[in-house]
Design a protein around this nucleic acid. Structure first.
Lengths: 106, 106
DNA sequence: CCTTTATGATACTATTTGGTATCATTTACA
DNA sequence: TGTAAATGATACCAAATAGTATCATAAAGG
C-alpha cells in the first residue's frame, strides 16, 4: 500500500512498459537499444523508462555518455506482494507456499 | 500476454479499484455497499466495478433487484502469473516454490 | 576544438480516464 | 397498481496519458 507500490501498478498498466520490462529481463539495455525494439520515437520510450524508474521497476546506471537500464527485481517483488492480501482466497497448499515466498522477500 | 491479462493490469492501476478488491476480499457486496466505503458517487463506483469486471477481477451475480459483486480469484491469479516471466531474476529457492504455485494455478 | 553520438527536456496534441449530474429501467411490495 | 429502492446508462468535463517534434546538453574521438 506504499506510494512506490502504487507507482508500480501505474507503471505496469501500459503494455509497452510491460514489454520493456521483459526485454530488460534478457539484457540490460541503453535507451537507444530499448527504442530499437519499438515503433515509437526514442523520446516516447524515454518517458516510459522514466515512469518505470519512478515505479522502482528498473534502475539506471550512467556509463560514460550512455545509461544502462536494468530490471529492478525488488520493485517487481514489492508490487507482487500486494497480492498477498488475497491469500485467503487461494487454496491452502498455495497459501503455505506463498507464506514462504513472503519470508524470502522479507 | 492475453487481452484479459492486459485489462487486468489496467484495472489494477487505479488505487480505488485496488481498494474495492480488498473490500470484496472480506465480503461480497452490492454496488451500494461498495459505494458506502468511498466519497465518490455511486455512478463512479459503478464505472470502477465495470472495469474490474472487464478485467475478470470480479464477478457479478444478479439477486433480485440488486447485484452482488464478488472477487474473481482466477482473474487475480492470471494477472499474477505475468510475473512468472521474471523467474530468472529471483533466487533459486523462490523459483522452485513458484514452479509449484504455477502447477496449482494450472 | 569540433563533430558525432547518446541522452535530457520541453512544448504541443489527441485520446483516455475518473469523476459528476441526470435520467431510464427493473424489481419488491404495500 | 403504483411507488420506492437498486441499478444501468448517457452526456459532459477536467485532468492525466501516450505520443510527436524539436531543441538543449554532455561526453568520446579524431
Amino acid at each position: 500500500m506504499t506510494g512506490a507500490e502504487q507507482m508500480g501498478f501505474r507503471a505496469l498498466a501500459d503494455p509497452t512498459r510491460r514489454n520493456i520490462l521483459q526485454l530488460l529481463a534478457n539484457n540490460d539495455m541503453t535507451i537507444a537499444e530499448v527504442a530499437d525494439n519499438f515503433q515509437m520515437t526514442r523520446a516516447a520510450v524515454k518517458k516510459h523508462l522514466t515512469i518505470l524508474r519512478e515505479g522502482n521497476l528498473i534502475s539506471v546506471q550512467a556509463e560514460g555518455r550512455s545509461r544502462l537500464n536494468s530490471l529492478n527485481t525488488d520493485g517487481l517483488k514489492k508490487v507482487m506482494s500486494w497480492f498477498d492480501y488475497f491469500d485467503a482466497f487461494w487454496d491452502e497448499r498455495l497459501n503455505t507456499l506463498k507464506d514462504e515466498i513472503e519470508k524470502d522477500m522479507q
